[in-house]
């Protein structure tokens, strides 16, 4: 197991190196000039060139790359060309809203979707099953911003139960955090509930047809125990796969939801950086996201052993 973990961690090095080279080159090939954003409409070509020089953008590409890699090896991601702020500081400010919203969304999704999926499988081809499946189709089909606006209109504008927008850190005021996070989380959860419920139902249907379930029932085991201890545990592998993938996607940033609910997460940070051609921030964000994906994959793979003792690394 330890050897496997070390091998996986070592495998990160070539992956991240390829990502770094690819991202660096791709960004430099994209049209756009951060100096033009900084200087504004009235800048003369000479002024633009002087700003480019002061930002290091006039240096040859290989020198820029070496400088950046040198910073990376020291654990630094550089400084934003636009705001002159360290990229690590910017990411540090913006990662927590994204993580918190992702965690809450996944918890909500699991709490709602898994029982829904189990119920649908248990009552296969009854109205319960059809309702769950109809909800799944709807959840997939309605764009996330429409759901967001509908929630805001209903719960914030009409009923005035919850704030329209904003974000407050849970450590600052947990109840205010919840009151602001609940609508974006519900909005995002709509998709994940649909996805997880559908996967749970399909997985459960297959397991419920297995011999050991029939045996358990024949032995007179209670139906809830059959469903949740015997069936659900054995159906968990694909469900957990979907949950893990969903979590990684949420951590990667959900730009539309962040915009609709005004959450200062890393999705918006990335989009803003791309629009401004803020190279160090884009590079930092893509490296971070890649690293997170690799890490989450590793954690998910390792967690297999908890759910299925037959799996060994």
């Amino acid at each position: 197991m330890l050897g496997y973990i070390i091998r996986r961690i070592l495998a990160v090095i070539p992956v991240m190196t390829i990502v770094a080279v690819f991202v660096f080159l791709l960004l430099r090939l994209t049209p756009g000039d951060p100096a033009a954003i900084i200087a504004g409409d009235m800048a003369t070509p000479a002024q633009l060139e002087r700003i480019r020089t002061s930002l290091g953008l006039s240096d040859p590409l290989h020198e820029q790359f070496i400088t950046w890699v040198g910073l990376l090896l020291q654990g630094e991601l550089g400084t934003s060309l636009i705001s002159n702020t360290p990229v690590t500081q910017m990411i540090g400010q913006r990662i927590w809203p994204t993580v918190n919203i992702a965690v809450l969304t996944i918890i909500l999704s699991i709490l709602i979707a898994v029982p829904m999926g189990v119920l649908a499988a248990w009552r296969h081809r009854t109205w319960v099953d059809y309702v769950v499946m109809a909800f799944s189709v709807l959840g997939f089909s309605i764009p996330v911003f429409v759901i967001g606006y509908l929630f805001i209109q209903t719960f914030s504008i009409e009923l005035r139960w919850l704030p329209v927008q904003g974000y407050i850190a849970p450590s600052e005021d947990f109840s205010k955090f919840l009151s602001r996070a609940i609508l974006p989380c519900l909005t995002l959860a709509t998709i994940y509930v649909a996805l997880i419920a559908r996967m749970t139902r399909a997985s459960m249907l297959e397991v419920l047809g297995e011999d050991y379930i029939r045996t358990a029932r024949a032995k007179g085991v209670k139906e809830t125990v059959v469903l949740f201890r015997h069936a659900l545990r054995n159906a968990a592998v694909p469900i957990m796969t979907i949950i893990g993938t969903g979590f990684a996607l949420l951590i990667g940033g959900v730009v539309v939801t962040e915009s609709v609910f005004n959450i200062p997460g890393i999705g918006r940070l990335t989009v803003d950086a791309i629009l401004a051609r803020d190279y160090p921030v884009i590079q930092g964000m893509i490296l971070l996201t890649s690293g997170l994906y690799v890490f989450i994959n590793l954690v998910i793979d390792l967690s297999y052993t908890f759910f299925d003792p037959r799996i060994r690394y």
Binding site: G92, Q93, R94, W96, P97, V99, N100, A102, V103, I106, I107, Y167, A169, P170, S171, E172, A236, V237, P238, I239, M240, T241, I243, G244, G246, F247, P264, G265, I296, V299, I300, D301, L302, S303, Y304, F306, F307
Partner: peptide, 21 residues
């Protein structure tokens, strides 16, 4: 694969400590 529960748990712990943004 599965096992996001660990990630969730870790996230929840981190969440409590965050005060930025």
């Amino acid at each position: 694969g599965r096992g996001a529960a660990l990630g969730l748990l870790a996230g929840a712990v981190l969440m409590a400590g965050s005060s930025m943004a």
